[in-house]
Structures are given as C-alpha cells and as structure tokens.
Design a protein around this nucleic acid. Structure first.
Lengths: 135, 135
DNA sequence: TGCGGTGGTTACGTGAAGGGAACCGGCCCA
DNA sequence: TGGGCCGGTTCCCTTCACGTAACCACCGCA
C-alpha cells in the first residue's frame, strides 16, 4: 500500500496551507455543512440571549415552517450545539438553550455577522462591477 | 403604512440580539451563501499562499470537476473575493489571487478551520450520543 | 361543543446545487 | 498526423434541501 506524508493514498487527501483535508471525515465539512444550512446560524443567534421555547422561536422567526424549525433544532441538538429540556408543565413545554459548545460557536457566528455587515457594501459593489463589465 | 423601529413592516424583519435581519437584502446571507457552497471555502484556502493558475487548482483539488472549478472561481470573483488575471503567454495562462477583501475573509475561514479542528471530537461525540440515545 | 395553544410528525412537490461527459480552438511536440 | 495541455462551455441527469399542507394527542377555556 502506497503511503504519503503518513496518510494512506486512496483516502483522497487534499493538502492546502500545510493542512490536510480529506473529503470523507473532514472536520471542517462537519461545521460548514451546519452553518451552510438556511436556518442554523439564525437559530444559534436566536438562542444567544438565553433559553427559548419552541413556540417562542416560532414567533421570533415567523418565516420558518414548523417542519424546518423542528429539523433545525434536531440537527443542532444532534451535533451538540444546543440542548433540549422538557418541563412537565401542563401542557408540557420544551426549552432549547445553547450548550457550551454552542456558545463557543456563537463567537464565530458573531464574527461572521460583523464581517458581513462591515463588508456588505464592498461585496455589493464588486458584484455590480462584475455584472456591468461582463454584461 | 405601519412602522416599527425605523423599518417598514412588511419587509419581514427578524430581530435577534438587537440586530435586524431581513430575509431579502440580508448582509449575512450574502456571506453564508458563499461559504455554504461546497468548494468556496476550500478555494479561498487554496489561494491563501499566493496566486494560482486554473490548472494548478485543478491538480491541487482533484475531486473538483472542471465545471465546478470554473463556477466557483466565477462566483468568488463576482463577489470580489478573488481577482482573475490573464497573461498573454502561449498558450494563454490565467492566474487567480485573493483580493484584499478575500484576504480579510480568509481570516474568518482560518478561524472556522481552527475551531472545527478543535471541536471536531466533541461534535462527533455528541452525535454518537444522540444517535445512541434516540435509537 | 369546539377552538386555540402546546410540540411535534408525515406525505408530497419543487427548484437549485452539484456531478459527468462531451466538445471547443489554439498551440506545441513527437 | 495526432495526441496533449490550456482554460473553459454546454447539456443532461440526479440528489437533496427546503417549503406546503395536513394530521396527531392533550389540555384549558369559553
């Protein structure tokens, strides 16, 4: 079996900036795929200020469907970003909150938000330029 | 026309953490949609060390199809992350490089990579936990 | 009696993202 | 003469993320 830099050739490894990225089992993919989802980042931001109940999230983000809300919450819960707690009230209420992992990730999301706001105009300008030139 | 916090109601504004997010014309969306793409972040990383030619990128990232390589480069160029320069050699060669905007964005991507590597195990563990419990 | 609020699940449909393969002109080299 | 490298473009097909809508049990309230 051929070897290269300690990695078995055949796992499809891409080396960039001295870092190896394998297509399968890529740590970055696990994260990107999450923040790439349409509602995931927004959900993390929504929970930034503290725990929220299912229906409160629904009211906060009216555009999301019940189906996508459930699915987004499940996805984030599965990967450990948020926790789910059921209270035996009548009717039973469910609270979602950021885990420490989620709060750590929140820092990145905030950075993304800040950067976006700071450079949004530049991006829009570049886009307009491109479209005008390549017309 | 009803007003609220200086924004016309009817544009569908979501307020989270004191920040308003409109579904249309959302700065964060412009960024998320880019990094969410399958190849965009990897391409930014690939250009981090300096300019690269089309075929060099192809060789560096063997998994990408020629079609997706072109499309990814165009998308990033359109939004101003990378620049494209054609040299009148024989045959003509094309070089891609990060713009200042792209380099600024690279910082975020690197942060994402570092975070992912640091917390990958935690995510995998959470996932395994979830799958075991919810079996 | 039936309506609304809890927190969901399920079935179904669609558009967009992505993959595969073929093709392009121009040039060099054998 | 015909491959191969260069930097693409075009067509077709599949997959999947997402949206819509209906349905569920349970309870309180009017």
């Amino acid at each position: 079996m051929n070897k290269m830099a300690g990695k078995t050739v055949g796992e499809r490894v891409i080396v960039v900036m001295g870092m190896a990225f394998s297509r399968e089992d890529c740590p970055v993919r696990d994260v990107i795929d999450n923040i790439g989802g349409k509602w995931n980042t927004l959900m993390i931001l929504a929970l930034a200020d503290g725990p929220m109940r299912f229906s409160a999230l629904r009211r906060l983000i009216p555009d999301i469907s019940q189906r996508m809300l459930t699915q987004t919450l499940r996805d984030l819960q599965r990967d450990g970003y948020i926790g789910r707690e059921v209270f035996p009230t009548q009717p039973p209420s469910v609270e979602y909150r950021l885990t420490p992992l989620g709060q750590s990730f929140l820092v990145l999301v905030k950075g993304l938000v800040d950067w976006s706001k700071a450079h949004h105009d530049a991006i829009r300008a570049a886009r307009a330029d491109y479209d005008a030139t390549a017309a």
